[in-house]
Design a protein around this nucleic acid. Structure first.
Lengths: 179, 179
DNA sequence: CCAACCATGTAAGCTGTTACATGATTGA
DNA sequence: TCAATCATGTAACAGCTTACATGGTTGG
C-alpha cells in the first residue's frame, strides 16, 4: 500500500476529521502545509485514488455538489503503518519535511510509547547523518570547498543540529506527560 | 527558459567543471546533494534536454562510449538569470532546499555584490515568513493546536530561525572579504 | 577470465502541473 | 442581479521512478 506524499498527507488530514476536497485544498493553500500542491488537478485525482483503494469513502450527504470524505478502518491502519515506521537516515537526508508531517499525524494515534519510539529513531538517524556530514567535511572533497560550499555545508549541519535539539526537547515533553 | 530543479542542478554542476553523465550521477549518489535522483532514467533525459536547448554541449572526445558535457555561454547566462533572482517568501515556504543550492552555485559567478544581494533577499523573505508563522500561532487555528501540532510548528520556526542566523553570519563573512 | 564497476540508454507507467471548464451559492 | 467565492472536475503535457538492457573497462 504505497501512496505518494500527497496521498498520505490527505489521509492524515482525514484521520483528524472528515472533510471536503475543497477544504483540504485550503489547508495546503492557507496554512504552513503549503509545500503540497493545492491545485484541483492534484487533489481530486489523489482523493479518487484513496477511494479506489478503499482507504476513504465519499459521502454525498451535504448540499448537492458538495461531498465529504471519511477515512475507513483500512485507511486508518494504512496510516498507522506509515507512521509507525522508524525514521531512517535516508528519510533525514532526502525528505526531512515528511518526518515532521508524520510526527504531527501521530496525534491521531496518540500513543505515548509509539511517539517516543518515533522520536528516538529520528534522533538516531540525525546522529548518523550528522556523522556522515562531518566526515564529508573532513574528507578530500570537503577540504577543497570554497567559501560558498563551506557555508552551504554549514547551513545544512546547523539545520540538522536544530532538529536534534528539537527532538531532545520533544522526547522530554512526552516523557513527562502522564500516561 | 524554465528548467526543473534537476535541470538547474546539472547546469550548476557543469558551470563548475565539464563532466560526464556518470560523474554527475555520482554527485547525487555520494555527496550531500542526495535529494536529487541519481537514476539514469532521470539524469540522461535531463542532460538531453539541456543539449536540445543548447545550454550545454556534448563532446565525444574521451574513450568511446564516454562523453563530456560542457556548459555553453547561453547556459551560463541562463544559470546566472536563475541565480540572480531575489529569494521570495514562496521560495522560503515551498522549496527552502533550492535556496542553498542556488547560493552554492553563486560561486561560479563570484560577484560579491550579487551574493550579498541574494543573501539579503533571503533574509527579508525569512523575516516575512517568520512573521507569518508567528501570526498563525496566535490565530484561532494556531490556538487550537495539540501538543503534536504545536511541537511541529515550533520545529519549523526553529529551522527558519537557524537559517536567519546563518544568513547574518554569511553576510558578515562576505562583507569582510576583500573586493 | 570473471566479477565488479564504469557508462549509457530506453520503455512503461504514474504523478503532478497548467489550463480550461462548469455550475452552485453567497453577499452587496 | 452580478461578482466573488465555493466546489468539483478533466484533458494535455512534462517529469520522474522503476525496471530492464547493453556493452566497455579494470583488477584479482
Amino acid at each position: 500500500m504505497n501512496l505518494t506524499s500527497l496521498g498520505y498527507a490527505l489521509l492524515g488530514l482525514l484521520s483528524q476529521q472528515p472533510n471536503t476536497g475543497y477544504a483540504l485544498r485550503n489547508v495546503f493553500e492557507l496554512t504552513p502545509m503549503g509545500a503540497f500542491s493545492s491545485s484541483p488537478g492534484s487533489i481530486y485525482p489523489a482523493l479518487d485514488k484513496l477511494v479506489k483503494l478503499t482507504l476513504v469513502v465519499k459521502n454525498q450527504k451535504l448540499a448537492k455538489q458538495k461531498s465529504l470524505y471519511h477515512i475507513t478502518k483500512l485507511g486508518r491502519s494504512a496510516l498507522v503503518a506509515w507512521l509507525s515506521q522508524n525514521v531512517t537516515v535516508s528519510d533525514v537526508a532526502k525528505k526531512p519535511e515528511l518526518i515532521l508531517l508524520r510526527f504531527s499525524f501521530l496525534e491521531s494515534i496518540n500513543d505515548k510509547v509509539l511517539t517516543i519510539g518515533f522520536l528516538t529513531s529520528f534522533k538516531i538517524a540525525l546522529c548518523q547523518h550528522l556523522d556522515y556530514l562531518h566526515a564529508f567535511m573532513l574528507s578530500a572533497q570537503g577540504n577543497q570547498l570554497s567559501t560558498y560550499g563551506r557555508l552551504a555545508m554549514e547551513s545544512g549541519i546547523e539545520q540538522y543540529q536544530t532538529h536534534w535539539k528539537w527532538v531532545e526537547k520533544a522526547i522530554t515533553e512526552f516523557s513527562e506527560i502522564s500516561n
